[in-house]
């Protein structure tokens, strides 16, 4: 009796396995060879804008976009190890290094917005509406007197890179600040870091997209205290993996997607995303602005922070004739 039951169970198991295996193969999708793996910074992906871009792009192209949402640091590592066909990141200094090392080509700036310094509404350090660098200086003074706490991402992401740059610009050494007890490192993503800052009633540097989302959902009550200024500009770029460094990378598909991101349609999606929910854009399109000179001040800021040798992609890091830089 026992053996017969065992046989039935075994058979049932095999049927379930077969069905499960079948489902797995099915769910891998019919366009398997045309997958384009895009390692992207979380601040782009987690807002949801890429879901919308994916839908619009896939409707027109026989390319299946595979977004891997990680920090800028890990996105670059992925690409270096051959695990991504292109990256979407926001840390210009590291992007240059990435191209110099021979891993990336054909960089295009796709959008920008501003980082913001957020903190408790009563602003114990009194930095509201100061210039970014001045605000940091005041903040350190107050924090050393025990009146303020700073929470750093501490995760080597693009935002963390920006934060370290800001401290340096303001004349502080992060390696020294880390030793002080008001400077706390979250070692987490932006959302988690915001929540930690909320709990501590602390200050932190955030990208606008994540902050608006968390604020809208009522998860944080921190307020934007310093939200504009040249130093806070946040520039998002797309870079294709150099086929010379990884012959398996799908270079053509990567270029197709980059072209889409800077096309009128791609730029429109970026501009309009989130307006209905937040009453403002999360990302500002950049192509028109750089081309027409409609806003020379902002264009100058973008060029100062996001250009190398006066261009978004120096000649030696351009590959093929794609008309990306006309």
């Amino acid at each position: 009796m026992r053996n017969r039951n065992l046989t039935i169970i075994s058979l049932a198991t095999i049927v379930i396995v077969a069905l499960g295996g079948f489902y797995l193969i099915q769910s891998m999708g019919p366009n398997e060879p045309h997958n384009l793996v895009v390692s992207t910074t979380t601040s782009l992906y987690d807002t949801g804008v890429l879901d919308q871009i994916e839908e619009a792009f896939e409707a027109k192209n026989q390319i299946d976009l595979y977004f891997i949402s990680v920090g800028t640091g890990l996105a670059i590592t992925h690409a270096q190890r051959g695990d991504a066909d292109m990256i979407l990141v926001h840390a210009p200094s590291r992007e240059l290094a990435f191209m110099e090392d021979g891993y990336g080509v054909n960089r295009k700036i796709i959008a920008f917005n501003y980082f913001a310094i957020v903190g408790p509404g009563d602003d114990p350090a009194g930095i509201r509406e100061k210039s970014p660098l001045e605000a940091l200086e005041i903040l350190v003074g107050k924090a050393r007197g025990g009146d303020a706490i700073w929470v750093s991402r501490g995760d080597d992401s693009g935002t963390h890179t920006k934060e370290k740059g800001l401290w340096a610009q303001a004349g502080f050494e992060v390696s020294a600040l880390r030793e002080e007890d008001w400077y706390r490192e979250a070692g987490s993503g932006m959302g988690k870091t915001l929540q930690i800052a909320e709990e501590y009633e602390a200050y932190t540097l955030t990208d606008m997209g994540t902050y608006l989302k968390y604020s809208e959902e009522g998860l944080v009550t921190l307020e934007v205290l310093v939200g504009a200024g040249e130093e806070l500009i946040n520039i998002y770029s797309a870079i294709a993996v150099n086929p010379d460094s990884n012959p398996d990378a799908d270079f053509d598909a990567a270029i197709t997607f980059i072209e889409y991101l800077v096309s009128d349609e791609g730029q429109t999606i970026l501009r309009e995303y989130g307006v209905d929910i937040y009453g403002r854009s999360l990302f500002n399109p950049v192509v028109e602005l750089l081309k027409t000179g409609s806003d020379p001040t902002t264009a100058e800021w973008i060029e100062a922070a996001g250009f190398f040798d006066g261009t978004e992609c120096p000649q030696e890091y351009r590959k093929g004739e794609y008309g990306l830089y006309n």
Binding site: S27, G29, G48, K213
Partner: peptide, 24 residues
């Protein structure tokens, strides 16, 4: 898996993603 929508997204990675997105 990389938490790729429609390919490798499973329950736990969705929970992590939606939490990061503030969709508690």
């Amino acid at each position: 898996g990389g938490n790729i929508r429609g390919a490798t997204r499973v329950l736990t990675t969705t929970i992590a993603l939606e939490t990061n997105r503030g969709q508690i």
